[in-house]
């Protein structure tokens, strides 16, 4: 990797690290981070494909309440760098490089998790410095500590990324080539299945007895290959609107008809 590429990779990693906590612009999502790293290192096509595959796995990864999800930022940045090293070392073919990087992304996402927990702990003294600045109505002080805290999260990804850049490319290629077929193939099989975990996280968040039938509809309709995702989305929106509309109607009907035999309940419903 050339000097400029390394600097740009570190910059992308820094952005991804910041976004890993901010969660606004989405630079930490594999789709964006892997694509950017692919572009700055001269492997755009492979970067995009890796980003797409990783994104499918990471779809349901989100920090909600006490549940801690794997860290997408380190997973996408580090696995993209490893893929690029494997490719530029020469003989590793794109498909192997992509599927091994996907498998490596999972342990990396765990490592990223520990790093982000570390940063969130270091941020405790930082907000105490903010308290001190607030005491003196020192606006600048509060702002500087806030920006430092954000940069800390950027550095969390930028440093591992910089270290990875200095691993010799032929070492990575040699490692990829030394990998026996059953291991590479098995990881590809595993990679096909792990997306289920992310989807399961989403389902557990939203599932109620009421919405399960919509899951079934989506699952069955998706087997029709002619329906694109946009078409499926349109069907989903239409179903949701119809369902909510009918439900409202049923509520009103129940009230005015008085068919329930429960006048008090009807009044409450109307209310």
């Amino acid at each position: 990797m050339g000097g400029i590429s390394v600097i740009l990779v570190i910059l992308v990693a820094f952005l991804a690290g910041m976004e890993g906590i901010l969660d606004e612009f989405q630079f930490h999502q594999p789709l964006v981070a892997c694509t950017l790293i692919g572009i700055v290192t001269g492997h755009p096509a492979e970067g995009i494909m890796l980003g797409g595959s990783l994104q499918m796995i990471a779809l349901g990864w989100a920090n909600v309440g006490a549940a801690v999800a794997p860290d997408a930022a380190l997973a996408s940045v580090a696995s993209a760098i490893i893929m690029v090293l494997g490719l530029s070392g020469g003989s590793a073919d794109a498909q192997t490089a992509i599927s091994t990087s996907i498998a490596l992304a999972v342990p990396l996402s765990v490592a990223g998790l520990f790093l982000t927990m570390l940063c969130r702990t270091i941020a405790i003294p930082i907000v105490h410095f903010m308290d001190a600045a607030a005491e003196q109505a020192n606006f600048r002080g509060v702002e500087i500590w806030q920006l430092l805290a954000i940069c800390l999260q950027g550095v969390r990804i930028a440093v591992p990324a910089a270290l990875l850049c200095f691993i010799p490319a032929d070492a990575v290629t040699a490692m990829l080539q030394a990998m026996p077929d059953w291991l590479a193939g098995g990881m590809a099989v595993g990679g096909g299945m792990v997306a289920a975990v992310g989807y399961a996280m989403v389902i557990n968040m939203m599932a109620t007895a009421e919405v399960w039938p919509f899951f079934v509809l989506g699952f069955v309709l998706a087997a029709l290959g002619d329906l694109t995702l946009i078409a499926l989305g349109a069907i989903g929106v239409a179903l949701a609107l119809i369902y909510i509309g009918l439900k409202d109607l049923a509520k009103q009907g129940g009230g005015s008809g008085g068919g329930s035999g429960d006048p008090l309940g009807d009044i409450l419903n109307d209310y």
């Binding site: 499918m56 997306a195 989807y199 919509f214 899951f215 989506g218 309709l221 179903l239 949701a240």
Partner: peptide, 10 residues
């Protein structure tokens, strides 16, 4: 509803 439908498809 939309989310469950799409997740089913995915």
């Amino acid at each position: 509803i939309l989310g469950m439908f799409i997740i089913g498809a995915l």
